[in-house]
Amino acid sequence: MASEQQILTDHEAIRNWAAARMGVPAVVDSSAASGVQPLLMIVFDQIAYQDQDRAERPQNAGGRELVEWDEWFDLFDQAQLALVVPPERPGVRDSTHQLVRRDEA
């Protein structure tokens, strides 16, 4: 139900939500063609560090790349996205999330 979800667009609120779940910003280059908007992600736990162990990939190879929050938020704002998350519940750190266009949130 949509009323049970929080819609976040504030950078600090998103950063705090991710930090509480040990999440880090990442992008996936989803196209072999250059100039195509990358896919934004927030990755969690061990998955966030697996990327660091891989050999260098050529640009546009479709791999996940960890990025700084400033770069992630630039893309987030350019694409007019919002982060949809479940409501906070005591004792629960649910990392379920979805990135949607703000006009669809």
Rank of each mutant, 00 (worst) to 15 (best):
R54A: 13
A55L: 11
A32C: 11
E71D: 05
P58H: 09
L99M: 14
A105M: 10
D77P: 00
D29P: 04
L66H: 14
M22T: 13
Q50D: 09
D53N: 09
R57I: 02
A79L: 09
S31V: 05
V84N: 02
D74C: 05
H97I: 01
P25M: 08
D53F: 14
E56T: 07
L83K: 01
P25G: 08
Q46W: 11
R89E: 14
E68Y: 06
V24A: 13
V67F: 11
A82I: 00
E65Y: 15
V43S: 06
V24H: 04
E68V: 12
L83S: 02
V92R: 09
P86F: 04
P90H: 15
F76N: 00
A48N: 02
R21F: 13
A33R: 06
P86M: 03
E71A: 15
R64A: 15
E4W: 06
G63Q: 10
G62S: 10
Q37A: 15
A79D: 02
R54C: 03
I47S: 14
R102W: 04
T9R: 03
E4M: 12
V27K: 05
L66P: 13
D103F: 15
R64Y: 11
L99K: 01
R101T: 02
N16K: 10
F73Q: 00
E104K: 10
E12W: 01
A18I: 04
V92W: 10
V36N: 02
P38G: 07
D74S: 09
H11Q: 06
R101L: 14
P86N: 05
D77L: 09
V43I: 13
R93E: 02
R15M: 11
T96G: 12
Y49G: 06
V92N: 06
M22D: 15
M1G: 15
V100F: 15
R89V: 15
L75Q: 05
P90V: 12
A2G: 13
D94Y: 11
V92P: 00
V92M: 12
E65R: 10
R54M: 06
R57G: 11
